[in-house]
């Protein structure tokens, strides 16, 4: 388990299987046009991973719903970001 996965493991989530609330609009843009790939570095839950081919994989299960990825993707606006359906997603115990 990576360092951030170990942290996220302590959190409580209610997963909305099959309904990711964040999507990459066009993966091709991430791979071919975006040079910064800030999402892979800045997401505090490590939801974005950079592949060997420069591709970006998004897994929203550990998402903390902060909004970072949407805001830093300002050059291409390639992140389609909504809140999870009511009741789903991160459920903070202490906040």
């Amino acid at each position: 388990m990576s360092e951030v996965e170990e942290k996220l493991y302590q959190n409580r989530y209610r997963l909305d299987a099959g309904h990711p609330h964040i999507r990459i609009r066009d993966p091709e843009v991430c791979q071919a046009r975006c040079t910064e790939k800030s999402c892979a570095a800045c997401c505090p839950a490590g939801c974005y991973t950079l592949g060997p081919e420069g591709d970006i994989t998004l897994l929203t299960d550990g998402c903390l719903e902060c909004g970072t990825c949407r805001i830093i993707c300002s050059e291409f606006r390639n992140v389609d970001w909504e809140y999870p359906r009511g009741g789903f997603g991160i459920l903070f115990k202490f906040g």
């Binding site: 951030v4 942290k7 800030s38 997401c43 505090p44 202490f94």
Partner: peptide
């Protein structure tokens, strides 16, 4: 019975420095 320890920086700075926040 607990301690809250945290750090926050401008998002534009995180983007420039490319430091993961948990690091």
């Amino acid at each position: 019975e607990s301690l809250a320890v945290g750090i926050g920086c401008l998002l534009s700075d995180f983007r420039r420095e490319k430091v993961p926040p948990y690091v």
